[in-house]
Computed example of a mutant assay.
Amino acid sequence: MGRHRSWAWLLVAGLSLPGCSSKQVSPQMYTGFLQDYSILTERKTPSGQTVLGWVSPGLKAGGYKQVYLEPSQVYPWPEPSERIPPSTLINMTGYYDAALRLELGKVVPLAAKPGPGTLVVRPAITRVATRTQGLRFYEWLPVTLVAAGVSTATGIRDQDSEIATEVSFEDGETGAVVAELVRMGTGVPLEDDKQVMTAYNVKAVLDGWAGDLRTAYMAYRR
Rank of each mutant, 00 (worst) to 15 (best):
88 T>E: 12
39 I>F: 03
56 S>A: 15
109 P>I: 13
87 S>R: 15
138 Y>H: 09
136 R>I: 06
124 A>Y: 01
55 V>S: 05
32 G>Q: 01
111 A>I: 09
152 T>W: 12
157 R>E: 05
18 P>A: 01
98 A>Y: 04
28 Q>M: 09
87 S>I: 08
152 T>Y: 00
108 V>Y: 07
55 V>Q: 07
48 G>T: 08
53 G>T: 00
81 S>M: 08
32 G>K: 08
77 W>S: 12
21 S>P: 05
146 V>C: 11
68 Y>M: 10
77 W>D: 15
25 V>L: 13
15 L>Y: 02
137 F>D: 14
13 A>Q: 08
114 P>S: 02
103 E>D: 04
47 S>H: 14
93 T>R: 13
13 A>M: 14
63 G>L: 12
56 S>D: 02
52 L>S: 13
155 G>H: 11
142 P>L: 14
63 G>M: 11
74 V>S: 06
123 P>S: 11
72 S>P: 01
117 G>L: 07
108 V>K: 03
134 G>Y: 10
115 G>L: 13
144 T>K: 06
155 G>E: 02
74 V>E: 01
151 S>V: 05
101 R>P: 02
135 L>Q: 03
27 P>H: 14
38 S>A: 07
105 G>I: 05
58 G>Y: 06
100 L>C: 05
130 T>A: 09
138 Y>N: 00
92 M>C: 07
64 Y>D: 02
148 A>F: 03
119 L>R: 06
147 A>M: 15
53 G>S: 12
75 Y>C: 04
41 T>P: 08
100 L>H: 02
83 R>G: 08
61 A>H: 09
99 A>N: 00
92 M>F: 10
39 I>S: 06
86 P>Q: 00
40 L>R: 04
106 K>V: 10
